[in-house]
């Protein structure tokens, strides 16, 4: 069975965890076909993605596993509109991310996609509150509304009292919560996470996954999470594996 075949079509409700949003699942959030990404470094070319076909339904919680250098982050970059594929197409909610203009792609990232990174990627000079607010800068949200929404988002991740702290004053788990608040404050439709628990201990890892799962359930988000941790992957309704640039369903 090829990756293309398994990836196509919405996932049945039977595999969804209880309480997961089901009503929107029939529509595809992502439709990817023959997606290829080739990096050229001098004479060496790396086929990071090779003819990947994949459909991710709206409201799905998907994990991507695989060996290091397998192409996980590269696929996530394509999903997040951070880079353009070498060939193939990738549509997000009807928008072809491979072909839209740079400014349109920037707007998609600003409005539709929330990112969570392995290294948290908070701005070190800004407080937790301000870090969350940065996500609302592209939307030109007025300052007062911005502050209110950021505060609410921090409360949602359980850090209502830590808004004034700088990232260095927070633990890893708390920093990742701030990063999640930053990703969610703009009410995106897609949440992409690259090894969100990679830098955390087991207990914190479980707390973060609990948080993400809770948000997924509450907000009807489509979540794609790269992880090398099978414990984390087992908690997702759909598990993909990518190795050597080729995608397979687990």
């Amino acid at each position: 069975m090829s990756a293309a075949e398994v990836g196509v079509g919405p996932t049945g409700p039977a595999t969804a965890p209880t309480g997961a949003p089901t009503e929107t699942k029939d529509r595809a959030m992502y439709e990817i076909s023959q997606l290829t990404k080739t990096y050229t470094q001098g004479k060496r070319t790396v086929h990071a993605l090779q003819a990947v076909d994949l459909t991710i339904g709206t409201g799905e919680l998907v994990s991507i596993q695989g060996p290091t250098g397998g192409g996980k982050s590269t696929l996530l970059q394509m999903l997040g509109g951070l880079d353009r594929p070498t060939s193939g197409s990738i549509t997000l909610d009807g928008t072809d991310l491979a072909r839209v203009s740079d400014s349109r792609l920037t707007r998609v990232r600003a409005e539709t996609i929330g990112f969570v990174f392995q290294g948290f990627n908070l701005i070190p000079t800004l407080t937790a509150q301000e870090n969350v607010e940065t996500a609302l800068v592209p939307g030109k949200v007025p300052a007062a509304a911005r502050a209110a929404r950021a505060t609410a988002a921090l409360e949602q991740v359980g850090l209502g009292d830590r808004g004034a702290h700088l990232p260095v004053e927070l633990s890893g788990g708390q920093q990742q919560r701030v990063a999640i608040a930053r990703a969610l404050v703009k009410a995106p439709t897609v949440l992409l996470a690259d090894e969100p628990t990679g830098n955390l201990d087991e207990q914190t890892r479980d707390e973060i996954v609990d948080l993400l799962e809770g948000l997924w359930k509450e907000q009807g988000l489509t979540v794609v999470m790269v992880t090398h941790d099978s414990t984390v992957a087992r908690r997702t309704q759909r598990r993909l594996r990518i190795a050597g640039g080729r995608l397979t369903e687990i």
């Binding site: 997040g80 990232r109 600003a110 990627n121 940065t134 592209p138 703009k186």
Partner: peptide
């Protein structure tokens, strides 16, 4: 990484 992150989260 910091500036890349800002671009990633949609800063023009």
């Amino acid at each position: 990484r910091e500036l890349g992150t800002l671009k990633a989260i949609g800063w023009p």
